[in-house]
Simulated scan of single mutants.
Amino acid sequence: MRSIVLTKGVPDFSEGAVSFDEDGHLERGKTPTVMNPNDGFAAEAALQTRVRHGGHVSAMSMGPPGYAEVLEEAMESVYADDSYLLSDRELAASDTWATAITLSAGLEKYQEEVGEIDLVFAGFKSADGETGQTGPQTSWALDWPIVTHVIALDIDPDERLLRAKRLVEGDVDEIETVEAPLPCFVVTDPEFEPTYRKASHRLSHKRLRSETQGRASDHEEHLTTWSQEDLNLDPEYIGLDGSPTIVSSVDPIPKAPSEREATMIEFDDDDGMGQVLGEMQPFAASGGDGP
Rank of each mutant, 00 (worst) to 15 (best):
A152T: 00
A152Y: 02
A152N: 11
L153N: 12
L153H: 15
D154Q: 15
D154S: 14
D154H: 13
I155M: 06
I155R: 00
I155L: 10
D156F: 09
D156A: 01
P157F: 15
P157V: 04
D158E: 14
D158G: 03
D158L: 08
D158P: 06
E159T: 10
E159N: 14
E159K: 13
R160Q: 14
L161H: 12
L161D: 00
L161C: 08
L161R: 08
L162N: 05
L162Q: 05
R163S: 03
R163P: 02
R163C: 02
R163E: 12
A164F: 00
A164K: 04
K165E: 15
K165H: 07
K165D: 12
R166H: 12
L167V: 14
L167N: 03
L167G: 08
L167C: 01
L167K: 07
V168N: 13
E169T: 06
E169S: 12
G170P: 10
G170F: 03
D171A: 10
D171H: 03
D171Q: 06
V172Q: 09
V172F: 11
D173Q: 15
E174V: 10
E174T: 14
I175S: 02
I175D: 10
I175M: 07
E176A: 09
T177G: 00
T177E: 15
T177Y: 13
T177F: 00
V178S: 02
V178A: 07
E179S: 09
A180G: 11
A180R: 11
P181D: 05
L182F: 06
L182V: 15
P183N: 06
P183H: 11
C184P: 02
C184Y: 05
C184K: 05
C184N: 05
C184W: 01
F185C: 10
V186F: 08
V187W: 12
V187T: 12
V187H: 02
V187E: 13
T188K: 00
T188Y: 08
T188A: 02
T188S: 13
T188C: 11
T188R: 01
T188G: 03
D189N: 11
P190D: 14
P190C: 00
P190S: 02
P190G: 12
E191G: 04
E191T: 04
E191V: 11
F192N: 11
F192Q: 01
F192R: 03
E193W: 03
E193C: 11
E193I: 13
E193M: 12
E193N: 14
E193T: 15
P194A: 12
P194C: 10
Y196S: 09
Y196L: 13
Y196M: 10
R197A: 11
K198P: 00
K198S: 11
A199L: 15
A199V: 12
A199G: 03
A199D: 04
A199Q: 13
A199P: 05
H201A: 06
R202L: 15
L203P: 03
L203G: 15
L203E: 15
